[in-house]
Structure formats: structure tokens, C-alpha cells
């Protein structure tokens, strides 16, 4: 299901015109990016939890050149499915 299919399906489910749904979907993702930070998580009942995790800096070595590199720390958005969703998948 690509983005187009998703918008259409969502338009059908929420009884809104696809254009509006497209716009709202963009706003929603922007809002999520806005709200979520290192100490906030988004919990959706029956679906899962979106949270931002901090990855520490680390040193990697290129095995061919033996060049070492320091990878800076970063924040990553992760999703953890809820048990309800997991059960449904079984």
C-alpha cells in the first residue's frame, strides 16, 4: 500500500475528500515531528508507541582502510507495536 492507496483508503474511511485527507496527513506528520522529542512519546491505543530514541556516538572502523570514524550521536524515531497489534498479526 503506497501513499496514494493509503490516502484513498483513509478518505473512504473518514468520509473526507482525498485532497483534504492528503493535506491533513501532511499536517499530522508535521505535527508528530513537532511534538515528539527526546522525552515525549506518542502512544496510540491498539496500535503502538512512537518514541524518539537517542543513539550515542560511537567509533566505527572501515575494515578495508582501517580508517576510524567518530559517528555523532543522533535521535531516531522508533515504533514499537502494541501487544494488541502483535496478537492480531499471529
Amino acid at each position: 500500500m503506497n501513499n496514494k492507496d493509503f490516502i484513498n483508503a483513509l478518505a473512504e474511511a473518514s468520509e473526507l475528500p482525498p485532497k483534504t485527507v492528503q493535506k491533513l496527513a501532511t499536517q499530522l506528520t508535521a505535527g508528530m515531528a513537532d511534538i515528539l522529542d527526546a522525552d515525549t512519546s506518542l502512544a496510540v491505543q491498539g496500535f503502538g508507541v512512537f518514541e524518539v530514541k537517542k543513539k550515542l556516538e560511537r567509533i566505527v572502523v572501515n575494515p578495508n582502510t582501517r580508517q576510524r570514524k567518530l559517528i555523532p550521536p543522533k535521535l531516531v524515531l522508533s515504533f514499537k507495536p502494541s501487544n494488541v497489534l502483535k496478537d492480531k498479526l499471529k
Binding site: L28, G31, M32, I35, D39, T40, S41, L42, A43, V44, Q45, E51
Partner: peptide, 9 residues
Amino acid sequence: KKRILPQDL
């Protein structure tokens, strides 16, 4: 962590 819900969205 502070939890936000779909309502907040």
C-alpha cells in the same frame, strides 16, 4: 517520558 495520545494530535 511524557506520553501524548492521538487526542493531542
